[in-house]
Computed example of a mutant assay.
Amino acid sequence: MATRKMTSRSLLRSLWRRTRSEADEDTEAGRAIVMPVQHVAAPLRQVTRRLVMALAVLGVTTLLVYLDRAGYNDNSDGRVDFLDSAYYATVTLSTTGYGDITPVSDGARLTNIFVVTPLRVLFLIILVGTTLEVLTERTRQQVRIHRWRSRMRDHTVVVGYGTKGRHAIETLIGQGKPKDKIVVVDPQKKVVDAAAGDGLVAVLGDGTRSDTLLRAELQRATQVVICTERDDTAALVTLTARQINKHATIVVAVREDENVPLLRQSGANTVVTSSSSAGRLLGMSMMSPNVGTVLEDLLTYGNGLDVVERPVTKREAGHGPRDCEDLVVAVVRGHRLLHFTDADAAKLQPTDRVITIKKAAVPAGD
């Protein structure tokens, strides 16, 4: 069965249909920001713990009243049994106080002053604290989001947290990018929750919508990585992102080679064709499995060999690429990319950057 390809023309038609169909949509998905998961007890567990504490206070109060039942008077029958003690403890701790059971002896009254009253306060603190915690959770979340927005600068926005997005983030973190400088955008709630569980700030919403990207603070980002499943979605996200931020570096992954020019025209700085790249790696692995293994090693940051870009050191300036400690494969001079055998790259300049292959750093403790 022939594989259906998404050409540039069909991609444009799909973009038009998506834009028309989404013009009137206004869902909560574009408004949700999920902060990294904090290691706190689950809400049900917190409520259960507080309920157990309240019951414990009620039980202690009931026991105290029952042990001193001779000092209490029940207006109905004149005596206080265990049920009456539980009833008195309940109405007293809840500050209801019907007055049908009252302490009459000095000992019972002293117990109410110094023991029952503090227990009543503790009981109310437990109940009110639980209520306030539930009511203020939303406020605390809003404060966290406001604080995050106020300090978010020069970060990386990753649209799509699938296989490509996860590996892109792993590489960024491996190269020293802090987790708090990475924001994930994805339309699926479970994916966003997974990103938050991994310690990342995540925005739930459609990346093709400007309000979603604005909530990810894309206007102040320096890098945008677009890893959507469809090429038409990637093109629309690229157009929206470039409209919001004119200076950010945008890297996009697409499936079809013929959509690369359209993505570049949409504002992408770099377009990676995932299917073609995988095909080339497969072909090279067939011809030479060792070559495929080395290339896979180079593409996997933190294992074996790594490809890194770094500035030229003072000691290396004025010398050739072969004189560097690392294996230099290319030289970046301004906006030019020079092969290490290029005559212009024979002498490194202080403002150059070099792309090198070096041994991956061994994690601490290994």
Score class of each variant (00 low, 15 high):
Arg13Ile: 15
Val47Ala: 12
Arg140Trp: 11
Pro289Ala: 06
Gln175Tyr: 12
Arg166His: 06
Met1Trp: 09
Arg242Met: 08
Leu218Met: 10
Ile145His: 02
Arg322His: 12
Val184Ser: 02
Thr293Ser: 14
Gly97Pro: 00
Val40Met: 09
Met1Ser: 14
Arg322Trp: 10
Gln141Glu: 15
Leu11Gln: 10
Val80Thr: 01
Lys314Phe: 01
Tyr72Met: 09
Asp342Pro: 01
Phe123Asp: 04
Val183Met: 07
Pro350Phe: 04
Arg336Phe: 13
Ile173Ala: 07
Leu15Ile: 15
Thr131Gly: 01
Leu298Trp: 10
Ala42Thr: 01
Met6Ala: 08
Tyr72His: 11
Val157Gln: 03
Asn73Val: 05
Glu258Cys: 04
Leu262Thr: 12
Pro118Gln: 08
Ala364Trp: 02
Leu110Trp: 08
Val143Pro: 00
Arg109Ile: 06
Lys190Ala: 07
Glu316Phe: 02
Thr3Leu: 14
His39Asp: 14
Gly199Gln: 11
Arg31Lys: 15
Val251Asp: 08
Leu282Val: 08
Gly174Ser: 03
Val80Asn: 01
Asp306Glu: 12
Arg4Glu: 14
Leu327Gln: 13
Gly78Val: 00
Ile226Arg: 07
Val260Pro: 01
Ala278Arg: 14
Glu28Ser: 07
Arg151Met: 09
Leu236Val: 09
Gly97Gln: 05
Met152Gln: 13
Ser10Phe: 07
Ala2Trp: 10
Ile182Cys: 01
Thr19Ser: 14
Ala195Trp: 06
Lys347Thr: 13
Ala195Leu: 12
Ala221Gln: 06
Gln175Pro: 00
Val332His: 15
Tyr161Arg: 08
Arg166Leu: 04
Arg4Met: 14
Val91Ala: 02
Glu133Ser: 03
Val254Ala: 07
His339Pro: 00
Leu110Thr: 04
Gly176His: 06
Val328Gln: 04
Thr19Lys: 15
Gly302Lys: 13
Ala235Met: 12
Arg153His: 10
Leu236Glu: 14
Thr7Gly: 12
Arg49Glu: 10
Ala317Gly: 02
Thr102Gln: 13
Tyr301Glu: 06
Ala89Pro: 00
Asp106Cys: 00
Asp193Val: 09
Thr313His: 06
Thr61Gln: 09
Ala86Glu: 01
Leu55Ser: 07
Leu58Ile: 06
Ile101Glu: 00
Val260Cys: 02
Asp24Tyr: 12
Thr351Gln: 15
Arg333Pro: 06
Val157Arg: 03
His247Phe: 09
